[in-house]
Amino acid sequence: MTAETENLIIVPRRHFGRIIGAAIVCIALAAIVRAFAVGQIEWDYVAEFLTVPAILTGLVNTIVMAILAMVLGITLGVVFAVMRLSANPVLSNTAIGYIWFFRAVPALLQLLLWFNLALVFPTLGIPGLFSFKTVEVMTPFVAALLGLGIQQGAFTAEVVRAGLLSVDNGQYEAAQTLGMTRLQLLRRIIMPQAMRVIVPPIGNEFIGMVKLTSLASVIQFAEILHSAQNIYYANSRVIELLIVAAIWYLVVVTVLSLIQGRIEAYYARGVAAPAQR
């Protein structure tokens, strides 16, 4: 290089458009913050009710319901995904019917159906062996779990099926050639690879489920929104308690997102390895 080029100073290009855009966004954000600060919100109440026992119980119920409904949903999803891929037409068509029905009917409607099951079947059980009164069995908890879990299974079945189909046929053949049985091959070779495709949407659905549990408030299940409503019916602090519930949803979903990232990184090993190293 010549001396001339060494002494030249590079002046970075100014991105005026970006600067103006950022300024507008800053003003808007400041206005929103100010609006909430001076608005009719008693932030002291928000802080106070954030940790009252009724809210915390509701929070625990929300988390427990989301986890149990997802466990039920994933279990059903795997079963129906495998059924759907079966060569037996009875099995595959049953799975198609299940997915069709429970994906099509709104979750809220399904919850109401389960909760009111006693109107259709006053007693449940096997005739001659045992029976229960449906109203006693179908508590808000059970109705919410069945309603949310079973509709989730229909969505998860499609996610799992997509995952299984994403694995190359050669992987099945290589595993078979090693003398693996069907179950060994699915567990050791196919599922670990399918998980890479399955985990991101399932994480997404898990987050959806956390929020979907709020629907169960209409059938008197004491999740966090239901608890918040019960309190504001008594003290009329509607917005403050809704903010309390919103804060907790944000916390739970944030934690779930972090966990999802970890799980994704685990199943991406082998595939993402060259890019990372």
Partner: peptide, 19 residues
């Protein structure tokens, strides 16, 4: 599966387990 154990196979597209 038992019969396949004693027969090894090498594929055109390798089919190693990527994970």
């Amino acid at each position: 599966a038992r019969q396949r154990r004693s027969i090894g196979m090498v594929f055109q597209r390798f089919n190693l387990f990527p994970h």
